[in-house]
Amino acid sequence: SDTKKVSNSKWTNRTRVLIFCSRGSDFRTRHLMKDLCTLMPHTKSETKFDKKASLSMINEIAEMKNCSKVMYFESRKHKDHYLWLSNVESGPSMKFLVHNVHTMDELKMSGNCLKASRPILSFDSTFDEKPHLAIIKRSLTQIFSTPNYHPRSQPFVDHVFTFSVSTDDKIWFRNFQVVDESLKLQEIGPRFVLELIRVFNGSFEGAVLYDNPNYESPNDKRRVLKLAHQNKYANRKL
């Protein structure tokens, strides 16, 4: 028990992340949340959040739960999923649209890792090129890294979280197992893609520091599609 005491005393980074979602979230979002909770021992969960309540309420909830970081999944119309990442104490926060979610339950991903082992975080250098991406990188680093000597974590490093930016400025997340000392990898899952909407100065409030000019809301996309098809009958008659 002596060694345990020593290791506990070294646990200095007390970052905790609150992961929760809004009412009306679908199964895929819930499974993704569950996956993230199993992979990250420094997370806490909370009951579903009522969308009618003001977003700044989340800051109070996080404070009551002793969490300094928040991942909040917001669902609209049962089909559009947004993700908020926030640093509760002083900001910033950012809102993303979530695309292409695959969970760990899928059979095509053949890797496996210890529950709650610490990950290596891998970023591509595009993150350092633009100021808003640099802020996102810092936030992702702080949220996804498991604190050293966290009491619920395993003392090994056997998987890699990768974050890559594509040419259309979307952030792709993958999770790989480091199989053995030859450093061969196998994918574990989950997968998701984040499209940035905005960066705010405060936590769920404050001035907009960055607004993605290429972002198109899913409502607008659907509207355009509908408009394109609206004169189908008239066009055929002509």
């Binding site: 900001g91 610490r118 975080l121 591509d124 250098s125 350092d128 802020i135 040419t167």
Partner: peptide, 27 residues
């Protein structure tokens, strides 16, 4: 503002975060 915001965010030691940045193979 983004830059000053980034400077205000605390940094952790590498052993806490284990983050690695590699050159992008732009896709």
């Amino acid at each position: 503002e983004l830059k000053s915001r980034l400077e205000k965010m605390p940094t952790l030691s590498w052993l806490e975060t284990l983050d690695v940045t590699t050159t992008a193979t732009a896709f």
